[in-house]
């Protein structure tokens, strides 16, 4: 039915069809992993078929179905309204023809063109049973990040702090408990400046002599202090 009929004529047509054979549409809930049994759904769960004017409504019955009697010809948007579970939307076409009406149901997608149909969900004439599928459980609440000692320990900041604590408190203890030979070796190394004797990169940067570097002085080993220093000093005084 792609005819663009004026509204009064359309209304007259729909009124006429009510006296012929109006379709009976039954929607059943297909249980899946999200919803094992539809019996747990609240009694306010209902389905609507919207086309023009007030939508048709059908409440969820005791047998977990939605029954629409007297569905007249038209193309309907079928939506299940439920507090706990989200259901997929359906496109339901009821075509007016001779005798019984033909009913077809497809999956439909929000924000898509109406012609963009999904998988077929049911087809038949007269009384049709169409399956609707749950697509998601509605999660209303935000979980509060509570205090968890394990995650607290996993935090990098805490790990870093703990590591430095181990260094501060553990190193002197280790040093004390070293046997004499190793200690002597260690002291020797320290004396050589492997561990702490030489200038650290940080102190090098802090003590960086920009002026001398700009002057083109190459930092190649300790300069012969006695030879150059006084001469420069004199030169400065003179200038």
């Amino acid at each position: 039915m792609r005819l663009q009929l004026p509204l009064p004529l359309l209304a007259a047509l729909t009124a006429l069809t009510t006296f012929t054979h109006a379709a009976r549409l039954t929607l059943t809930i297909a249980p899946n992993a999200l919803l094992s049994s539809a019996s747990v759904l609240p009694p306010s769960t209902h389905a609507t078929l919207q086309s023009s004017g007030p939508p048709l409504r059908a409440l969820l019955t005791k047998t977990n179905t939605f029954v629409f009697d007297n569905v007249t010809a038209g193309s309907y948007l079928g939506v299940i309204h439920c507090r706990d579970i989200a259901f997929e939307a359906l496109r339901i076409d009821v075509s007016s023809g001779e005798g019984l009406q033909k009913v077809e149901a497809w999956q439909t997608f929000w924000g898509n063109e109406w012609e963009n149909k999904g998988e077929k969900r049911g087809e038949g004439s007269g009384g049709v049973v169409v399956e609707v599928r749950p697509v998601g459980v509605k999660e209303f609440y935000q979980s509060r990040g509570g205090f968890d000692p394990l995650s607290f320990l996993k935090s990098p900041m805490i790990l870093m702090a703990l590591f430095s604590m181990v260094i501060i408190f553990g190193m002197p203890y280790l040093m004390e408990n070293m046997d004499a030979e190793t200690k002597a070796e260690f002291e020797e190394m320290r004396g050589k400046g492997v561990l702490s004797g030489g200038p650290t990169p940080a102190s090098q940067i802090q003590n960086f002599d920009l002026a001398s570097w700009m002057a083109g002085k190459t930092d190649s080993g300790p300069p012969p202090a006695a030879a150059i220093e006084p001469a420069q000093g004199k030169g400065k005084k003179r200038g």
Binding site: Q4, L10, Q50, S51, L77, G111, W114, E115
Partner: peptide
């Protein structure tokens, strides 16, 4: 707004 059923070629809802 509520879209009318007669709009076959556009969206619905």
């Amino acid at each position: 707004l509520t879209l009318d059923a007669s709009t076959d070629d556009t969206c619905r809802g």
